[in-house]
Simulated scan of single mutants.
Amino acid sequence: MLPRTTADISTHWAFGQDIEVLPRIFEDDITLAVMERPLDSALTLAVRAQLGHQRGLEWHWRGAPGQAMQEDLARRLPAPEAGEALVQDIGTIAEAMAYLFSTDTIGIRLRTLDVAMCPRFHVDNLPVRLVSTYAGPAGEWLPEHAVNRAGLGAPRPDKPDIVADPGAIQQIGVGDLALMKGCGWVGNEERGLVHRSPQPASGERRLLLALDPG
């Protein structure tokens, strides 16, 4: 085996355009695995239809992915008559998540947001989460070299800035599927991915999907 270079050691993310990139989250050094994907026209139209309604969306599910989950989601959409592509996409993602983590239970949230949900850089205390932004600005994250972990946690006047290099802030693409390790992943207690929610522009709304296995 060839020795790893310094660049290899510092690179804790994996990006790809195929679903095979997602299992790389199980590698010890990887804290972010992203499947890059554009939203097709049917899915884009379904998303626009939901955001075109004044009523917001706040849907939660915890249980097995499958027909019951998809039917429940369809009933809760602001524009269910135009939501088939979105329901099917979330169903496919949920089933893939259940398969990847060998679980029958998935926690799912789909919500519209017009403010930043978590505007401060932070780490999650859970093992892993999958997030995908269907519309609006997608999440931002920091490479480890740009993080001052002493600044994490509840803000205090004596804490240093979390961001050691503002020019290193990265952003996930709209439509991408991003698996993020948190501090609850065994062996990753001090290396949870540092990330935050961006602030939508005035009058803009995000449509955000989040899934937790188990």
Rank of each mutant, 00 (worst) to 15 (best):
S41M: 09
S41W: 08
T44V: 06
L45F: 01
Q50C: 05
L51H: 03
R55S: 09
W59G: 06
H60Y: 15
A68M: 13
M69K: 00
M69V: 10
Q70I: 10
E71A: 13
E71W: 02
D72M: 07
D72L: 05
D72A: 15
L73E: 01
A74M: 12
L77F: 05
L77E: 02
P80T: 10
E81Q: 14
Q88G: 08
Q88S: 08
Q88N: 13
D89Q: 14
I93C: 06
A94E: 00
E95T: 13
E95M: 11
E95F: 02
A98S: 13
A98V: 06
Y99I: 06
Y99T: 12
S102Q: 14
S102G: 06
D104R: 15
I106A: 04
G107I: 07
R109Y: 05
R109M: 11
R109A: 15
L110Q: 00
R111D: 11
T112A: 04
L113I: 10
L113V: 07
V115F: 07
A116I: 10
M117G: 09
C118P: 08
C118G: 11
C118V: 13
F121Q: 01
H122Y: 12
N125C: 09
L126M: 10
L126C: 05
V128G: 01
L130F: 03
V131G: 00
V131M: 09
V131D: 04
V131F: 07
A138I: 11
W141Q: 03
W141E: 03
